[in-house]
């Protein structure tokens, strides 16, 4: 089949070249520019330096990095905690029509313009908005509390944005799950919750892992959400990168920060894919032993 691999080469070539030039190579540039000094017109200076990396020891950064990290973790945890029961419910819904409708309802906000979703939250949490009035009326919060421009607003909108990201991969696996296994466990005396925990959750673990990746990684890079619904005390790494680019135009510094964020992206990516390979190997071994 020599001919086939030849055509294959040509099929793959254009996209390969494109992605190397416009995706892989730029990432390399980011890593390299972190070792360059800035020049006075907002460009990149000549020569190599470690000064830019030293500037990362800015005293305000540890708090920002920590906040990026925990907000990412919390929003991922909440999204998964919500997505699992939804996927369970969806895959147990016997009416195909109802199932598709609910799925569609979950997907629509996901495809709605990102800025419009953020805008909707700014309206919803607005100090003059109906929701605020309602909360004050029932006495949950005093009149002086602002709902916008704090880290709770950021967290809420992040969760709002990423819920569909978590539901889709988990549901894709859950849909194929064999629910008779749970019935069997119950017939053998297991409680519903026990069967859910010991049979359903391991059964959909692949979907859960995918969901963790597709929520956690973009969450680490969140920039627009904290920028538009957060205040000065809820900035994340993404905001700092954007500020270095657009406010004080220090591209090497922005590269150094981006390199840091890249670590946060690629380390979990590689870790999870290694973990999965290891699991698959073990599974194959176990099957072979049988």
């Amino acid at each position: 089949m020599k001919k086939s691999s030849f055509t294959n080469f040509f099929l793959g070539l254009p996209s390969f070249v494109w992605l190397v030039v416009f995706y892989a190579f730029p990432i390399l540039i980011v890593l390299l520019l972190a070792f360059r000094p800035p020049d006075s017109n907002g460009g990149i200076g000549t020569g190599w330096t470690l000064q830019t990396l030293r500037e990362l020891r800015n005293p305000s950064y540890p708090a920002i990095i920590w906040r990026t990290f925990w907000q990412g973790l919390v929003s991922t945890a909440v999204c998964i905690a919500v997505a699992v029961p939804i996927s369970y419910q969806l895959s147990r819904t016997s009416s195909q029509k109802l199932r598709n409708t609910i799925l569609l309802l979950i997907i629509v906000p996901f495809w709605t313009n990102f800025l419009i979703r953020i805008y909707a939250w700014r309206i919803f949490l607005h100090p003059e908005g109906a929701f605020k009035h309602l909360l004050v009326l029932i006495g949950v919060i005093p009149e002086s509390t602002g709902l916008l421009y704090n880290q709770w607003a950021v967290l809420t909108v992040m969760i709002y944005t990423y819920i569909p990201f978590a539901v889709l991969p988990i549901y894709a696996i859950s849909e194929k799950f064999d629910f008779s296994l749970m019935e069997a466990a119950k017939d053998l005396g297991a409680s519903s919750f026990y069967a859910f925990r010991k049979i359903y959750l391991p059964g959909i673990s692949k979907g859960i892992w995918t969901a963790v990746m597709v929520v956690l990684i973009p969450a680490f890079g969140a920039y627009l959400i904290p920028d538009l619904v957060g205040g000065s005390t809820s900035e994340l790494i993404g905001d700092k990168i954007a500020q270095r680019v657009f406010v004080d135009r220090n591209l090497p510094h922005a590269s150094a920060l981006s390199a840091l964020l890249m670590l946060g992206v690629f380390v979990p990516l590689i870790l999870v894919s290694c973990l999965r390979k290891f699991q698959l190997k073990n599974q194959k071994k176990a099957e072979f032993m049988k």
Partner: peptide, 10 residues
């Protein structure tokens, strides 16, 4: 999965 901001800046 790469965050938008990384693609943008790179």
């Amino acid at each position: 999965v790469v965050p938008d901001i990384l693609m943008g800046i790179s």
